[in-house]
Structure formats: C-alpha cells, structure tokens
Design a protein around this nucleic acid. Structure first.
Lengths: 133, 133
DNA sequence: TTATTATTGTTATAATATAACATTTTATAA
DNA sequence: TTATAAAATGTTATATTATAACAATAATAA
C-alpha cells in the first residue's frame, strides 16, 4: 500500500516518524525535545506539524491527555473519527478499531438531529492486565 | 427531587451556580473572573472546585474545548460518562441524552476486553440551524 | 513567469493547569 | 465533648500547553 509519508513536508515527516515509532502517546513539548537534533527548535514548529498531521488523519489527539498518537486505522474514511481505550491504571492507550462502532456513531442522530462529521471517543477503564493484578 | 447543592462547599457552590446558569460551556479563567466578586481570587480555587464537581458528576469537561458545563442528565448512574454534540459552526454544545447510546457504550468491549468505567464522547458536526443557512 | 498557497523560522506571549505549603473548617469516632 | 482525621481554603509561585504576529522561503498552479 502506498505510504502518504512522501507527501509530508520536512517538519511534518520528522514529527510523524517520532510519533509513529513511539509506543505511547507523545506530548507536544516532549516531541519538541526529541526533534531538536533534527533542527526543529520552537513549539510552533511542532504544533504546526501536529495540526497538519491531524488534518490529514495521520495522527489523533488524545484530548484528555493532550497527547498525540499515530492513527492505526488503515481506512482513511474514518481517519477523523477516533476512539480510544485508556487504562486508568497503567495509562496504556490503544485505538479502538471496530467497524460496528464506527458505523453506529457516524450515523448517530440522537435528540438533536445533528449531522455528524466526526467524533472523538475516549473509553476509560481497566485493561486486561491491570484487572488481573 | 432533592438537590445536591446543599452538599457543596462554599467555593464549589459558587462555581457550580455560575456554570449552571450559563448557557454555554465556561472556561476556567472565565469562571475565575466571574467569581472574584464572590471572594474567589486564585485559579487553583476554581480548579479545585471544578475537579470536585466533576468527581461527583455535577459538571462535565468538554475536553476539546477545555470548558465546563453542568450535567443535564438526572440519572446519576451515568454522570461520569458523557456525550456531547458540538456544532462546528455556531459552537453550540449540548449534552446527548440517549439511553441506548449510554447502554451501548457502557457495555462496549471491542477488541481489547477492557472494562469500561466511563467514557467521554464528543460529536462534531452541523446543528439543524447551521445546516439551513 | 508570476501569482498563489503552503511551509518554515523566530520571538514573544497567551491560556491552561498544578506544586507546595500553611491554615481553617467540617465530619467522625473515641 | 474532645481529639483526630478528612476535606476545603488561601496564597504564591511556577509548570505546561498553545497561539499571535511578522518575515522569509519553497512549492504549485495559472
């Protein structure tokens, strides 16, 4: 499958690669300190890259943590809608990849008759590991 | 129905009343400037009240906006789980009150076998009004 | 080419949130 | 009721997250 990385600008690529390799959500200033050796010096350079990457659906923001993760859905259609599990104990975060959920939420009307363009859903709970202990 | 307000401390009550009367989500520092006449002088006093109010389910935080609204669900059971519509045009925000959705999400297991304690869901789209224009 | 758009670089500053410590009030139980 | 624990308050300082404003450069399209 064709990667979109080639379409990314220099800063966008640097930031995205860092996020993609990380196995946890990264915060903006943590990203900054990790890309300074690559020539990115200011917060705004990071935030601009982050905003663009979110716009094109390559990353998502975990709103409750102010942190950023690479999208793990190959389907670009749902790239702007996102859902995550957040373990309250170990802080592990994983993207939910459930097409039924996606369909259900994307077409959700509720009481308000709103047309849903995107949504963000964050589940908090205990992951399997943390329940056992 | 018995109000819980009586259980609130002085600062909690001041902050809650302001949020409840507002017809839009309020930001912490906006709250601060509005309660200074009531003797609350520092950000931390506001944040402490906000945290407590969230804990007991009287308010919710709109994570994507860093803003706070009074809970409009009378059911205390679901007070920690919250779902909102956010109109991308007029910024109007309303709480979703849909028991099917609540049940569906509260019992959602997905791929991860997580036990869901709470969730936060934010729908973005166009409200009825803004679609017409 | 030339105009337009996206991206970059940079400094300063705004907006959001917590740490740390001292004190006071309220609730609980001995 | 009195001691003691728990919750709430007050205060100063500071950490963290994010954007404004302006100048320059690179990429793309007309």
């Amino acid at each position: 499958m064709k990667q979109k990385n080639e379409l990314l600008s220099k800063n966008q690529q640097v930031v995205f690669e860092l996020i993609e390799k990380a196995n946890e959500p990264l915060k903006a200033y943590s990203i900054l300190s990790n890309v300074q050796k690559k020539g990115i010096k200011a917060p705004l350079q990071v935030y601009r890259a982050l905003n663009k990457l979110m716009e094109i659906g390559k990353i998502h923001k975990i709103e409750s943590k102010n942190a950023f993760v690479a999208c793990t859905n190959n389907s670009c259609k749902i790239s702007k809608a996102s859902a995550f599990y957040i373990c309250e104990t170990c802080e592990d975060i994983s993207e939910v990849n459930d097409s039924k959920l996606t369909k259900y939420l994307s077409s959700f009307k509720g009481n308000n008759d709103m047309k849903v363009n995107k949504y963000n859903l964050e589940f908090f709970g205990l992951c399997k590991n943390c329940r056992v202990r």
